[in-house]
Write a protein that binds this DNA or RNA. Structure first.
Length: 423
RNA sequence: GUGGAUGUAGUUCAAUGGUAGAGCACUGGAUUGUGGUUCCAGGCGUUGUGGGUUCAAGUCCCAUCAUCCACCCCA
């Protein structure tokens, strides 16, 4: 019936939900700070080349999911489909490497992909993520994972699993792709149509296929882990050792293939199987060529990103509570216009003293004002009528207990402040 | 991009092709100076939109848009 609706795949975060978002965002910021990451905000649109050159121009994201548009000068921009490329661009452009050898950055905000909406998937969705640029130490891989794990635990989630893999450096990956192509070629006719395409374009994806006949064939496919060179293998071993030191449980899943082209070596996912088809809570990995590709020094980086929607879904299925919804401290109930005048002055003063006050001038009867106070969840009611005005007193009522007392007008502010402080 | 299901009041849902209804929520009152319980009263909403079939369409058909779920992809 409404004339206008939110665009497909987008949605409004309404007051009944927004406090949950505040809560998870605050928790992520806190967690990032524990590990000394600092917040960065980048534009939500960028030169589309930034994504096309890094995410991979054969990936679905740039092939069909980007919101691209031209501005009045004909420049081609894209709404950011992910965060890493933008952060790295900002890192290079602002010379952040000069200040420190390594940069530890986190971000949060909306991302955009022209996808078919489904559970846990939207066209405008909200991600949080971190990037650690400049270090090649596998300890950092472990610490990045630890941060993600810490965050999920802090939220109270329990039903997730960490899966790790190494997809090797560029050289290992090449050898491995070749090996896969050799292996799967002999089964070409038995693979599904999609996998036949994947065989030429991106053979690793066959390992991920959900078609049963493909899975059967994939069981005996060569493992990436056998194709890692000495460095990559050592790093992967070191990562596992660090995770064990940190007592973070994980599972090696050599079928993790991150979708974005820039990933190398460490790849990991936090998966929650109660979420439905879109079950990746957090995904991340190391990206070695990315910084150079965007015009920076030959540095390495590692990071992850997670979707807030899926986080909220997981919290819902695990029945985890949030910090309470915002409610007013006080509701002002007035009877008569004279009382209202005095009340307005008191409210002004209360708000200047950090007391939140609600008042509805459209409600006249005291009964209806009390009802509204109750519904708003106010802790106290301030009741002011003609009688009190004459006595220069006001009534303060505790809504939970129903107990009320009169106080002199000139002491009410401090009385309320004391009562709120002790409640 | 593909497939399936679904679109009726703010919301959750009813209505053998024949005058569009209920619960919850909301507003007012009972209580003209006191909330939560209770009772009473208050509902035209282009039945998502546009066509078509029919004497007659919320109901059947087509298209379109949207939602949900899955494929795909990914956070």
């Amino acid at each position: 019936m409404p004339k206008y609706k939110a665009p497909r795949g987008t949605y409004d975060i309404l007051p009944g939900e927004s406090y949950k978002w505040q809560y998870v965002r605050a928790l992520f910021r806190q967690t990032a700070r524990l590990f000394n990451y600092r917040e960065i905000e980048t534009p939500i649109f960028e030169d589309s080349n930034i994504f096309e050159r890094t995410v991979g121009d054969t990936s679905d994201i740039v092939e069909k999911e980007m919101y691209k548009f031209q501005d009045k000068k004909g420049r081609i921009f894209a709404l950011r489909p992910e965060g890493t490329a933008s952060v790295v661009r900002a890192y290079i452009e602002n010379g952040l490497h000069v200040k420190n050898n390594t940069s530890k950055l986190f971000y949060l905000g909306p991302m955009f992909r022209y996808d078919r909406p489904q559970k846990g998937r939207h066209r405008q969705f909200y991600q949080y993520g971190i990037e650690n640029i400049g270090s090649v130490s596998p300890y950092i891989d472990a610490e990045v994972i630890a941060l993600a794990d810490h965050f999920l635990k802090k939220l109270g989630l329990e039903n997730y699993q960490l899966q790790i893999n190494s997809i090797g450096c560029e050289n290992c990956a090449k050898d491995y792709d070749k090996a896969l192509q050799e292996y799967f070629s002999s089964y070409r006719g038995e693979l599904c149509a999609d996998c036949q395409k994947r065989l030429d374009k991106n053979p690793k994806r066959i390992l991920d296929c959900k078609v049963k006949s493909c899975q059967k064939i994939a069981v005996d496919a060569p493992s990436m882990l056998d194709y890692l060179d000495n460095d990559c293998a050592a790093n992967f071993q070191a990562l596992q050792a660090h995770l064990e030191e940190m007592e973070i449980s994980f599972k090696i899943n050599h079928r993790i293939v991150r979708g974005l082209d820039y990933y190398t070596q460490t790849a990991f996912e936090f998966v929650d199987n109660n979420l439905g088809a879109q079950n990746t809570l957090i995904g991340g990995g190391r990206y070695d060529g990315l910084i150079k590709k965007l015009g920076g020094k030959d540095q390495s980086g590692i990071g992850f990103a997670g979707g807030f929607e899926r986080l909220l879904l997981a919290m819902k299925t695990e029945k985890i509570g949030f910090a309470t919804e915002d409610i007013p401290d006080l509701y002002f109930v007035n009877i008569g216009s004279k009382a209202q005048k005095t009340g307005i002055k008191i409210m002004q003063e209360l708000r200047q003293n950090d007391v939140s006050v609600e008042f509805d001038p459209d409600r006249t009867s005291i009964s209806s004002q009390m009802k509204a106070a109750n519904r708003a969840g106010a802790k106290f009611c301030l009741i002011l009528g003609e009688d009190e005005l004459v006595k220069k007193r006001v009534i303060l009522k505790d809504m939970a207990s129903g107990v009320q007392h009169e106080y002199p007008l000139d002491s009410i502010i401090s009385e309320i402040r004391n009562r709120l402080a002790s409640s």
